[in-house]
């Protein structure tokens, strides 16, 4: 009986998946239809936000919420900028290097950190994000202090400098696709199954012989490395960084995107970023309301849609079925 009733449901989900994929492709093409530089800029920001939030999602898959994600974006940004400007390293080498630096920092602090769980992990990551900002401000020779580092060289690949937004957009889109493909592979592999087991029930996973501490640390390292990777692209696109760019507010914005999109799904960060990042542009006449709207959306999603927007279609279909 149960198999009969799940058959059409799986069919519907894969149709839904195809619709979702087509919608994504159409959305990604929007800036070329309008041809507006500003729309290209928004699209780049959506990609970067989605990428960083996907890193945060990886950490959420083992049941932890990090408020230090902005700091890891910052670590990647500073690593790449310092490598390129001080040592003359090409961007294409600095980019993976920045992911490695962020991942290495996460690996070093992850072991003691991940003994904490729930709100205690949130609190310590909150403190670490603040500590990162304060320490960076103390070393202006490295960080540029409160005036930051300006005039960061643009992204260049094999000697070709990406001067204009459309070129940067193509590059960011490819990088986002790469990150999402990587996470898809991890999620569907043995590591992903361990993530899910740890998230579902830590004690049970431990009892079943899963090395929970190492599993959580792996998720923390992968998620933070993705944050660092995003930070490098962001720094070279925007051209300016300072310790304040990576403060508490940035970490909170990733949490909002992740929770709104869906904490436990792969598509969640994408949906969250597509929905929230361009939102202020549609509300241009009421721009001062944008943060209030973010706050309201966050509370409403938590209250009525704990699985985030990613869970909305299933929820609608489910209620339709029970209604009819």
């Amino acid at each position: 009986m149960s198999t009969v009733s799940t058959m059409p449901a799986t069919g519907r989900v894969s149709v839904g998946g195809a619709v979702f994929a087509i919608a994504l492709v159409v959305l990604a093409l929007v800036p070329w239809f309008t041809g507006s530089t500003f729309h290209f800029h928004i699209a780049i920001m959506v990609c970067l936000a989605a990428m960083a939030s996907a890193g945060l999602a990886t950490i959420a898959w083992v049941g932890q919420l990090s408020l230090a994600h902005g700091a890891f974006v910052g670590i990647g940004a500073y690593a790449s900028v310092l490598l390129v400007t001080r040592l003359g390293v090409p961007f294409l080498i600095a980019l993976p290097a920045s992911a490695i630096v962020a991942g290495a920092v996460a690996y070093l602090i992850g072991k003691p950190l991940l003994r904490l769980c729930g709100v205690y992990f949130v609190l310590i990551t909150f403190a670490l994000n603040e500590l990162f900002r304060l320490v960076m401000l103390e070393f202006p020779s490295v960080s540029g202090g409160s005036s930051g580092i300006a005039g960061i060289p643009k992204i260049s690949l094999f000697g070709i400098v990406l001067e204009h937004q459309p070129e940067v957009y193509v590059f960011t889109l490819v990088m986002l696709a790469f990150v999402m493909a990587l996470l898809w592979t991890i999620r569907n592999g043995p590591l992903g199954r361990r993530f899910a087991a740890v998230e579902e029930n830590l004690v049970l996973a431990e009892a079943s012989g899963i090395p929970t501490a190492r599993t959580q640390n792996a998720a923390f390292v992968i998620g933070s490395a993705i944050a660092g990777f995003t930070g490098a692209i962001m720094a070279h696109y925007i051209g300016f960084i300072s310790p304040e760019s990576f403060a508490f507010q940035l970490s909170v914005s990733y949490v909002i995107i992740l929770v709104t999109g869906g904490r436990l799904s792969l598509a969640g960060p994408l949906i969250g970023a597509i929905f929230l990042v361009p939102l202020p542009e549609f509300l241009r006449s009421a721009q001062q309301y944008q943060h209030i709207i973010y706050g309201v959306v966050l509370i409403l999603v938590l209250r009525f849609l704990p699985g985030g927007l990613a869970a909305l279609p299933r929820k609608l279909l489910g209620s339709e079925r029970s209604g009819g």
């Binding site: 919420l65 709100v119 909170v252 949490v255 001062q288 209030i292 706050g295 309201v296 966050l298």
Partner: peptide, 30 residues
């Protein structure tokens, strides 16, 4: 209005308070 639904869920209650903080601060700004 805000916290009662999250009584058994520490993490969601905390995330809701982040949203509440944004609403209050930007309301005052407005």
């Amino acid at each position: 209005v805000v916290f009662r639904p999250f009584r058994s869920d520490e993490l969601s209650g905390m995330i809701a308070s982040l949203g509440l903080a944004m609403i209050l601060q930007n309301g005052a700004l407005l």
